[in-house]
Nucleic acid binder design. Structure first.
Length: 468
DNA sequence: ATAGGGTTAG
């Protein structure tokens, strides 16, 4: 291949870059590097683009240190890194949320006399957003971007909109959308981000409005748009409408990657339609290898568990390992929850322990399932021990514990936990409050307990006014 | 750099 390049001096480096680019794209970094070395031997000199391509590959697929090591080799070859080099390194560090590293690279870039561009700042801002540090992200936009004389592009707005939506500030997102339309042309992605954010916060009317805006602006909805709408239908219990949309998606070729299938299957499982779920899952597994990822395996695993098909579960777990997919938090939750719902309490506890042995930390969702399952199997004491050991808990943890303590007659404990939720501003469904109050209302013979109950009731009712 | 799928309580 390289010998061929020799025949075309001048364009040979361009051809080298194209080859290096496609090798890097398919994670073939060693081959890309040896191609560069062969090239040098034969007089085809790599340029800054060649090295940037390689650095980008290392940064994406290997690691930030390995990517950085290439910049040294680059300098040795007499080529100085440019802004694109640093942007690749920065995005690698940002992907792993290594904020210190990101800042270090910014400093180094400035010291080399290079100015960060809009892409650099976009990466920095998205890193701050992912860390939940919105204030600092906006500070970068207002102070650094404008100071540098840069102006936000549509991609900057996309990042801002997504962050606003995901943090629940959908009103601000809508305002920002109206503003950005006066400055840049929204992309299809811009609409998709907004529709998704509006759907997730149940702003159905606005979501439909944005969908119409999308079509008015001349774009055609894509697989992402439709999958988002599909989820909205399922969430609002419009199963038939969702299934109709899925049919349309299939006809128009929007189900190639299996995303929609997974959404449909899990909706069918939840509504007890296992037969149809199997049918839909079969379509997914028949299609290209691209759609068989850990998410589709998790979906299928959940289906087998909900169907009580433990033999199929075993086979599937073996297949997952054989194919080299790595079980994630969802996989473990599905296993623990599946075992619990089939009455295999000991098996679930064993699996929970084995997560730690695999070097992973059981997720909060997995623990929530375990707590709920233990309670329902009558082991409230064991559940409360796990509850006590959890460093972070969410509304699922508390809702489950409060309900189960009520059922177990531990009303004072349930009341205290419920009150602590109100104090922390946690959103607890009103059903939990009703359970506690009706428990407390039951007459107790013991005079002291009765007094405590009355006090608890008063405190909870007082909170009910402030947290309806 | 930025969009969609899979797990839990009532």
């Amino acid at each position: 291949m390289v010998r061929g390049l020799m025949k075309f001096p001048g364009i040979s480096t361009k051809l080298l870059n194209i080859s290096v680019g496609s090798l890097c794209k398919f994670r073939n970094l060693e081959k890309a590097e040896s191609l560069i070395i062969d090239g040098i031997r034969l007089g085809v000199l790599p340029d800054v683009v060649t090295y940037n391509t390689l650095i980008n590959g290392y940064s994406r697929f290997v690691g930030i240190d390995e990517a950085y090591a290439v910049t040294r080799r680059m300098r040795e070859a007499g080529i100085e890194p440019d802004v694109a080099t640093y942007n690749s390194l920065i995005s690698g560090a940002a992907r792993h949320l290594m904020l210190n590293r990101v800042h270090q690279l910014f400093d180094e870039m400035l010291h080399s006399g290079l100015s960060p561009d809009m892409w650099s700042y976009n990466t920095l801002m998205s890193c701050y957003f992912k860390l939940g540090r919105h204030g600092e992200a906006f500070r970068i936009l207002h102070e650094h971007v404008h100071l540098a004389g840069l102006s936000p592009g549509v991609d900057t707005y996309n990042i801002l909109l997504d962050a606003l939506c995901k943090s629940g500030h959908t009103d601000n997102a809508i305002e920002l959308f109206k503003h950005l339309k006066t400055r840049v042309k929204p992309e299809l992605m811009t609409y998709n981000i907004l529709i998704n954010g509006l759907c997730k916060s149940r702003r159905v009317g606005y979501a439909n409005w944005m969908f119409r805006e999308l079509k008015k602006s001349g774009y055609t909805p894509n697989a992402v748009t439709y999958t988002t709408m599909l989820k909205l239908y399922f969430k609002t219990k419009r199963i038939e409408k969702g299934l109709q949309l899925f049919l349309k998606m299939k006809k128009e070729g929007h189900t190639f990657d299996g995303y929609a299938n997974c959404a449909v299957v899990s909706a069918l499982i939840k509504t007890g339609r296992a037969e149809e779920a199997y049918e839909c899952m079969k379509e997914l597994m028949r299609s290209g290898t691209r759609s068989k990822d850990i998410v589709s395996y998790n979906t299928l695993l959940n289906l087998y568990f909900k169907d009580g098909n433990l033999d199929a579960v075993d086979d599937l777990l073996e297949e997952i390992e054989l194919k080299g997919f790595k079980p994630d938090d969802y996989t473990h939750t599905i296993i623990v929850n599946g075992l619990l719902s089939l009455g295999h309490i000991g098996g679930a506890e064993k699996h929970l322990a084995c997560i730690g042995e695999l070097g992973m930390q059981p997720s909060i969702v997995t623990c929530n399932c375990m707590i709920d399952g233990l309670c329902k199997a009558g082991h409230v004491d064991r559940a409360m021990r796990l509850f006590a050991s959890m460093k972070v808990r969410d509304e699922y943890t508390y809702t489950s514990v409060v309900h189960n303590l009520c059922k177990d007659g531990q009303l004072v404990c349930a009341s205290k936990l419920l009150l602590s939720c109100y104090n922390e501003g946690m959103k607890i469904p009103s059903s939990a409050r009703r359970a506690v109050l009706s428990g407390l209302r039951m007459t107790v013979s013991n005079q002291a307990a009765r007094k405590t109950h009355i006090k608890m009731k008063a405190a909870i009712e007082c909170n009910a006014v402030m947290h309806p």
